[in-house]
Simulated assay, not measured.
Amino acid sequence: MLNDYLRRHDGVITAGQALSVGLSRQSVNRRVQSGEWRQCARGVYFVEDRPFTDAARVRAAVWSFGEHAVASGLAAAWWHGLTRYAPVDVEMTTPRHGSGRKRPGARVRRRDLKTGDVVECRGLKVTALPLTALEAAVRGSGNRAVMDRALQREATLQQLWSAHLRNKGRHGSPAARILLQAADGTHSTAERILTGLLRSSGITGWRANVRIGGYMVDVAFRGAKVVIEVDGWAFHSDQATFQSDRERQNVIALQGWQVLRFTWLDLTEYPERVLATIKAAIRV
């Protein structure tokens, strides 16, 4: 039972969990004293017969703040699979009146979470996907794609708004509200960003909202026969819309036009790369 528990929990175990699977306090102490177990924090141990992975590090950090601690922010985003790399500092949320000292490698926010905003994932309490996406997306501009990835999965825009309203006043709440507002009617927002970039960079020879092959395109360079289409957040593209966009793109391409597609995130996160691509395409 002990080995199975350790396998499922990345080699991390608490004193209480050890007792629940049949070990005595003396047995736990012997393992620590012999070096078989490493003490990560008071009452939290790691078994030294395996690599200390990022999953073990995150789990140990959260468990070191007690049974009510919840992984949140970028730590929760990584645990949910929304980001590729685990954060250096493990962010977690603990009850407002909880205990626990600050320690290296941990960022603690004290807030009482609603039941619906906490889930258990692979044996660890983490913020639910909608709240995780909101909190992680505002941890620096490079993390805005986290919200998009969450909404490509089972989360919905309505769930994100609900999570936001339940947690007003949290760190990053104003920035999250701006992202959510941008998500409503995002295509028009992205189109305005694109035309603004073209004007500010001095690129000429284009027109917005041009009809080609029976379709209205966002921007067209008639001289270079280049069309630019902008997409909103990924969650706006259901299967039917995805298929329609591809059919539309094929019709335009068969008439001799090169089609460039950019997303809201491309335009806001990588505008210089977008402009370089457009310049390369229209260069004669």
Score class of each variant (00 low, 15 high):
135 E>I: 09
36 E>L: 15
52 F>E: 08
37 W>E: 06
211 R>M: 14
217 V>G: 02
189 T>K: 14
229 E>S: 07
204 T>N: 14
265 L>F: 14
67 E>W: 09
134 L>A: 10
168 K>R: 13
211 R>P: 13
229 E>D: 10
40 C>M: 14
262 F>K: 00
133 A>K: 03
163 A>K: 07
165 L>K: 04
171 H>Q: 14
142 G>T: 13
237 S>G: 12
75 A>S: 14
247 E>I: 13
178 I>K: 13
74 L>W: 02
64 S>M: 08
257 W>L: 04
40 C>E: 15
258 Q>A: 06
152 Q>K: 13
95 P>W: 04
254 L>E: 13
45 Y>L: 06
70 V>N: 01
185 G>I: 06
219 V>N: 00
197 L>W: 12
32 V>N: 11
178 I>L: 15
162 S>K: 12
283 R>C: 15
137 A>I: 07
36 E>T: 15
136 A>W: 02
245 D>E: 11
210 V>F: 06
279 K>V: 05
90 V>S: 02
129 L>V: 08
263 T>H: 03
43 G>N: 10
92 M>V: 08
58 V>Y: 00
177 R>A: 12
73 G>L: 04
152 Q>E: 15
65 F>I: 03
136 A>C: 10
70 V>S: 00
119 V>C: 01
267 L>H: 01
128 A>T: 03
232 G>I: 02
266 D>G: 00
277 T>H: 09
283 R>A: 15
31 R>A: 05
125 K>C: 07
8 R>K: 13
